[in-house]
């Protein structure tokens, strides 16, 4: 039963959806504060390379080093996001231009690839990596074994993050403030909320999440470093935030759905099932679905209902209001 198509695809969807989930949660926090950061792919790749560098070069026990590596990846992602934050919040540059520039600058064939090649990280497999937490006997339990108990600790931590982000946005004072900043910075400003400080903080936290997402690739999914290892996952994560209507719980569902789509094509092939160009539609479906959501979002009446932050992408200038 555990080798049936459905169980394998769902289990795989959870594993491969996890980096999407981390990156999307980060981008969600950033966008909820009114800042659009298209640099997710670049920040992920910086996190991926720095997390991997840590396990290869810093000597410590396996558990400790992995925790440190995740911390380093988060820090590296946050520092990369700081460039974007400075440009768009302090200097009020175009968020789209700055975000794209960040991905080109930090991403594949950019800074991340320079760092990886300069440290010669491509030469060896990871010295430490995240393994499944539960014993093999538990992983063999029907259905829940592979899907729930066959995962590594990053998956379980991501579930905690979903709950934490949801509680933060709906049940805490700062969380409500962020939503105010993202929807109406002028009103938030009048209430005495420091708009710039909130936007800085959430852009940096978003970068940290993206860094962890990148490290999920190099320390768990494919434990090695190669240039451009995230393979466009950052763009899917941005699409995912829109697809999930800016809600953390829907990010989880969407991430696993998109993750499972990627697993579907090889699974069908390995089972000798041919239903047309699966590769084509499995890879394009996330984007097609995002286009549909974008069309919905572009109409102002549905926009409010879907939950798009009203001031998303707009720089806030006090004297212009």
């Amino acid at each position: 039963m555990n080798h049936s198509l459905a169980v394998v695809v769902i289990a795989s969807g959870v594993a491969y959806g996890t980096p999407l989930l981390y990156a999307a949660l980060g981008e969600l926090l950033t966008e909820r504060s009114g800042v659009l950061n298209l640099g997710v792919e670049g920040m992920m790749l910086i996190g991926a390379v720095m997390g991997f560098w840590t396990v290869q070069r810093v000597h410590a026990g396996s558990g400790a080093i992995l925790v440190v590596a995740i911390g380093v990846a988060a820090l590296a992602g946050a520092l990369t996001a700081a460039i974007h934050a400075f440009l768009v919040i302090t200097l009020r540059a175009s968020q789209i231009v700055s975000g794209l520039a960040l991905t080109i600058f930090a991403g594949a064939a950019g800074l991340s690839s320079y760092l990886g090649n300069d440290f010669n990280l491509g030469d060896n497999p990871a010295r430490h990596q995240f393994h499944a937490v539960f014993p093999a006997s538990v992983q063999r339990w029907p259905i829940v074994g592979p899907i729930v108990f066959g995962q590594n600790v990053l998956v379980y931590v991501s579930w905690a993050c979903v709950v934490a982000v949801w509680l933060y946005l709906t049940r805490t004072r700062p969380g409500l403030n962020v939503r105010a900043v993202g929807d109406s910075p002028a009103a938030a400003d009048a209430m005495g909320i420091d708009v710039a400080a909130y936007r800085y903080a959430h852009t940096l936290v978003g970068g940290a999440f993206a860094g962890v997402a990148g490290a999920t690739f190099t320390l768990a999914i494919t434990p090695q470093w190669v240039d451009g290892i995230t393979g466009g996952a950052g763009w899917i994560a941005i699409a995912l935030v829109i697809f999930a209507f800016w809600r953390p719980e829907l990010c989880l569902v969407g991430a696993y759905f998109f993750g499972a789509l990627q697993a579907l094509s090889p699974e069908l092939q390995a089972r000798g099932i041919h239903i047309g160009p699966t590769e084509l539609w499995a890879n394009s479906l996330p984007y097609l679905m995002t286009i549909v959501v974008l069309v919905l979002v572009s109409a102002s009446s549905t926009r409010r209902w879907l939950g798009a932050p009203a001031a998303l992408g707009l720089p806030y200038v006090r004297e212009e209001r």
Partner: peptide, 27 residues
């Protein structure tokens, strides 16, 4: 002031992009 700040920002992000593109072709 707002305009000049924005010009600086544009210049900064543009130079970031140029920097990235020159670094982009690995050789």
């Amino acid at each position: 002031r707002g305009k000049s700040v924005r010009a600086v920002a544009l210049l900064a992000s543009a130079s970031l992009a140029v920097l990235a593109l020159t670094a982009a072709t690995g050789s």
